[in-house]
Design a protein around this nucleic acid. Sequence first.
DNA 1: TACCAGGTGGAGT
DNA 2: ACTCCACATGGT
Length: 316
Amino acid sequence: MTEPLWSGWQPLSPRFTPPPPVLAETLDGGQAFRWRQTDGVWTGQWAGHLVQLRSAAGGLDWRSPPALQAAAAAALPRYLALDHDWAALTDSLPWRSDPHLAQCLAAFPGLRLLRQPFGETLLGFLCSATKQIVQIKQMVALLAARHGLPLLPLPAPRSRLPASFHRLPAWSELATIPESELRACLLGFRAKYIHASAVFIAARPGWLEETEHLPYPAAKARLLELPGVGEKVADCVLLFGAGRLEAFPVDTWVLKSLARRYGLVGWQPAQVAHFGRTHFGARAGLAQQYLFAWEREFGDRSLEGGTAGPATGAAL
DNA sequence: TACCAGGTGGAGT
DNA sequence: ACTCCACATGGT
C-alpha cells in the first residue's frame, strides 16, 4: 500500500503552549509567509521541511511526512526558537513602566519570534513592500510552485496530497530566472529588486552566509547594499531570520502604533526607530512584534472615542 | 472610486 | 538634509 502522507502526531518538546490565536499570530502574523490553517491544523514549510502543528491539551503536537520526519524533528526546535526562554525575554521588556506595552503583552501571551532560514526571510521581505500579508503569501507560494524544487520525491499522481509542495528557490537559482518570469509571480516592481539582489548575491559566494553571522550593525550594513533592501526590510530579515532581537523594523503599523499610543505624530520612520531602540531596549524587536500585532488587531477600533494619548487603554 | 498594503530608490529642492 | 514621487497589484 502507499505510505501515509503524514506520520503520527507527536508532542512538541520543549513545551510550547500558546493559545490558538497567539499561535496564529506567531505563524501567520507577518513574520513568515508559508503557513496555512485548515480545520485547526497549521501546515508550514521552510527550507526542505514540511510540518503540521495543532493545539492539544498539554501543548502543541506536530507531524511531518514520514520521509521528512527525522529532519523536521531536528529542525523544529530551532525554527520555533524552543530553546529560548521567551517568558524571561518578554519580562525583560519595559512593560512595568509602559501601560500600552503591558496591554499588548496581555493581549498576545506567549508571542515569540521565529528563527527562519536567512535567505528565505530575505526573499519574503523583498516581496513585502506595500503589500498585504495575504498577497505576500501568494507571491511566495507562486515562487515556490513555479521555481522551487519539489519537496518530496512524489510517489503518485493520484496521491492524497492536497497540493504539491515545493521549496523556495535558492538565491543561486533566482539569479538565473528572467525578471519577466518573476513578474509573472505577481511581484510587480519587486521583481527587479529580487533579480538584481540575486545577481549581486550570486556574484559573491558565501556573502549571504557571512552576513547572517555578523554582528547586527555590520550585518545590517551589508543587507542595505542589496537593491530593494532598506532599513525596514533589513531589520525584518535580521529579526525573523537571524534572531537579532535588537532589530526594530518600522513599517506602517509600527508607525501608526507609535503615533497613536506614544504621541509620536508626524515622526519619520528613522526617528521612530531610534525612539524604539532607546525606549524598548536590547530586545526592542520583540516589543515591536507585540505592538505590531496589537495595532493590527485592535488599533482602528480603539480610535473610536478617546484621543490617542500615550497608552490610552482600550478594554481587552 | 478612492485609499491602503510589514517600502525603496531616485530626482528635485 | 528633506520632500515628493514612481513603482504593480489586489483588498477593503
